[in-house]
Simulated assay, not measured.
Amino acid sequence: MKGVLLVNLGSPESPTPKDVKPYLDEFLMDKYVIDVPFLLRALLVRGIILRKRPEESAHAYEKIWWEEGSPLIVLSERMHKKVQKLVETPVALAMRYGTMTIEKGLQELHDQGVTEVMLFPLYPQYAMASTLTILVKAEEIRKKKFPNMTFTDVPAFYNKPDYIQNLANVMKKHLEGFDYDQLVFSYHGIPERHIRKTDVTKSHCKIDGSCCNTPSPAHDFCYRHQCYETTRQIVKLLGIPEDKYCLTFQSRLAGDKWLEPYTDVEINKMPARGIKKIAVVTPAFVTDCLETLEEIAMRAKEEFEENGGQEFLAIPCLNDDDAWCETVSNWIKEWAVAAQKIA
């Protein structure tokens, strides 16, 4: 029997330091997130970051927390329910970090008799710290707990026409009537070394301004290329002039060389250049979360206005948009039919 496991990032149980600390510990101690030797990672995370970050992050979570709970969890559950209604295949929802574990999601499917699982990381672009860590964790659990299950991994969907159309439609809807000076495509940042580590050719990714535009097998796993390609397809579809948009990367950690340009730095310089009205879209996420709701819609907006900006529009993610849920259900149906033919 076939089934689907949708997997998103996760969330603390509550916006309190007590619950944020174990969540951050699990997240930051992931070797695919902070990819340094264990002892150094433990010293960095448990000896330095977790001394102050839980309180700071708890305050940020508190600002975006809904009555129903974490926005990321609530929105993911809404999307999950809509998708399940559109397909006959059992669909479960899990998170990479937190209490809604991948193991619980697989157990839910197992209890329904599922043996073939469509493993669906909810990330448009491939990255070590998002897609890969989900695939590796799920495989570890499968081998240990569900050896009779088989997985079909959903690849990055950054350039699938229906996803691009869904994103473009949401953007068009929210941009209607807003005469922006600049449209900012803000993607979650990653260390530059992650790009080189996922380069299957071991030589293509130089992050030099040209490699992302030069055809290569490396692009199947290159986060930077996939961010640029998502942007290219969106602006082409919406007819956005070259001088009206830019691409940036947000959410970096100090101490490493991360992908540039940085969202906060670029946005804060815009008012001085006469760019007073901006819209920001975050296509690395399909679900609104701390990075979109607090970092962009609140903090970036506040800093932009403090620097002389006049109008700031944060475009929501796809969330539980009906057309997006229909697209996901169509991908599930296509997989189920293809898998049936192979069987």
Results as ranks from 00 to 15, higher is better:
residue 327 T to Q: 15
residue 62 E to G: 12
residue 87 V to E: 12
residue 100 M to V: 00
residue 85 K to G: 12
residue 149 M to E: 06
residue 275 I to G: 02
residue 267 I to D: 10
residue 315 I to G: 09
residue 261 P to L: 02
residue 214 T to I: 07
residue 312 F to I: 04
residue 180 Y to S: 03
residue 128 M to F: 06
residue 112 Q to Y: 03
residue 317 C to Q: 06
residue 198 T to E: 13
residue 92 A to L: 02
residue 322 D to M: 08
residue 241 P to Y: 02
residue 229 E to S: 00
residue 129 A to Y: 11
residue 160 K to R: 10
residue 281 V to D: 07
residue 258 W to P: 01
residue 75 L to F: 13
residue 134 I to V: 15
residue 209 G to M: 05
residue 243 D to K: 09
residue 313 L to Q: 04
residue 47 G to Q: 03
residue 9 L to M: 11
residue 12 P to Y: 06
residue 16 T to H: 06
residue 112 Q to G: 01
residue 187 Y to P: 01
residue 246 C to H: 02
residue 71 P to N: 14
residue 64 I to Q: 14
residue 333 K to F: 03
residue 340 Q to T: 01
residue 139 E to D: 12
residue 237 L to Q: 09
residue 52 K to Q: 06
residue 77 E to S: 14
residue 250 Q to D: 04
residue 299 R to F: 10
residue 128 M to W: 09
residue 194 H to V: 03
residue 155 P to C: 06
residue 115 T to G: 10
residue 8 N to R: 05
residue 278 I to H: 04
residue 250 Q to H: 10
residue 263 T to C: 04
residue 111 D to F: 01
residue 338 A to L: 11
residue 165 Q to L: 13
residue 207 I to Y: 13
residue 239 G to V: 01
residue 154 V to D: 09
residue 112 Q to T: 05
residue 116 E to S: 13
residue 196 R to E: 14
residue 250 Q to W: 12
residue 300 A to S: 08
residue 320 D to A: 12
residue 331 W to P: 08
residue 250 Q to I: 03
residue 267 I to A: 08
residue 127 A to Q: 12
residue 223 Y to E: 13
residue 149 M to T: 08
residue 297 A to S: 15
residue 298 M to R: 15
residue 265 V to W: 14
residue 37 P to E: 01
residue 133 T to P: 00
residue 189 G to E: 09
residue 172 K to Y: 09
residue 290 L to A: 04
residue 331 W to A: 04
residue 183 L to K: 02
residue 322 D to K: 13
residue 53 R to K: 13
residue 120 F to K: 01
residue 299 R to A: 08
residue 59 H to F: 14
residue 237 L to A: 07
residue 248 T to N: 00
residue 64 I to A: 14
residue 143 K to C: 11
residue 76 S to Q: 10
residue 317 C to L: 03
residue 96 R to L: 07
residue 79 M to R: 00
residue 293 L to I: 03
residue 335 W to I: 13
residue 243 D to F: 06
residue 202 K to I: 01
residue 196 R to P: 02
residue 229 E to H: 08
residue 237 L to R: 02
residue 207 I to W: 09
residue 132 L to S: 12
residue 155 P to S: 05
